[in-house]
């Protein structure tokens, strides 16, 4: 079929468009010369440079703290929320409300949170970033866990109750193990988003504690430096890895 060939060609170009810039960055990160245009031989020099950069390591640590904290809370709240939405309150208004943070432009959410923290006189810190990230991560976890729950056979819980396990025990022995892949996938997604999130972190971060994306932003604004290529490669690979694991847990479907 001619149209099949044409579609294949078109799609190939789209994939090239999506991946060429990323692959280019990765290749450049191993270029000893540091220049985008002159190959100075394969080297891990720029990676070694990164390890010397204390500010950068600090920012990376900050990012990990924020991502871990927001993931823990949103995994718990998001899972409960998914169960609630799936079986108690099948309610369109509630659904819309919960997924509101996914629809609102992030700049709006960012300034709202900045205003709020200022208004209640809460000093900006890693904590305020974490709190803010939980707002949208709950929605992501809930969405993934809900997909998993929709395949869940409710009579399994009834069977457990019937066999003498009270509700809480039933939750931990039957429900949770069976939706765990969804919870893990949702948590991995939440972790990744939090790790890479820039706009909201930018507005809710304290001046002395930037996260990695904030630091990258300030580096990038002042031009292209070769060590950013190495950093970018690490961050991109880490995210991709986490997402692929999440995918293995049956995760990323159920968004649209």
């Amino acid at each position: 079929m001619r149209s099949q060939t044409w579609l294949r060609f078109h799609s190939s170009l789209v994939y090239i468009f999506l991946y060429a810039p990323i692959l280019m960055l990765i290749v450049l990160s191993f270029n000893r010369s540091g220049l985008p245009t002159a190959w100075g031989g394969f080297s891990l020099y720029w990676y070694a440079e990164l390890l010397q950069n204390r500010a950068l390591l600090n920012a990376a640590l900050n990012s990990l703290l924020v991502a871990s904290g927001s993931t823990l809370v949103s995994a718990a709240f998001g899972t409960l929320l998914a169960m609630g939405l799936e079986r108690i309150a099948r309610n369109l208004v509630l659904d819309a409300f919960v997924f509101l943070p996914m629809i609102i432009p992030d700049i709006v959410l960012a300034i709202a949170l900045l205003s709020f923290f200022t208004f209640i006189e809460m000093p900006l810190s890693l904590l305020t970033i974490t709190i803010s990230h939980i707002v949208f991560n709950i929605a992501f976890v809930a969405a993934i866990v809900r997909t998993r729950l929709s395949y869940f056979d409710n009579t399994l819980e009834e069977a457990s109750l019937d066999l003498g396990a009270p509700p809480l025990k039933t939750f931990f022995k039957i429900t949770l193990p069976l939706i765990l892949p969804g919870v893990i996938a949702g948590s991995l997604l939440a972790f990744t988003i939090s790790l890479d999130e820039f706009v909201i972190a930018f507005f809710t971060a304290g001046p002395a504690q930037p996260t990695l994306p904030i630091l990258i932003y300030s580096m990038v604004r002042f031009g292209v430096t070769p060590d950013v290529n190495a950093l970018a490669t690490i961050v991109l690979s880490l995210s991709a890895l986490l997402i692929l694991i999440a995918q293995r847990f049956g995760g990323t479907e159920g968004f649209f």
């Binding site: 009834e158 019937d162 396990a165």
Partner: peptide
């Protein structure tokens, strides 16, 4: 339900998919 001396066999059987036959019966 969990305190009743009454047990049920479900139409779908509702066997716990993450447990072995043994663990299902022992549950």
């Amino acid at each position: 339900p969990w305190n009743r001396p009454v047990n049920m066999m479900f139409q779908s059987y509702a066997l716990f998919p993450h447990m072995s036959v043994y663990d299902n019966i022992a549950y």
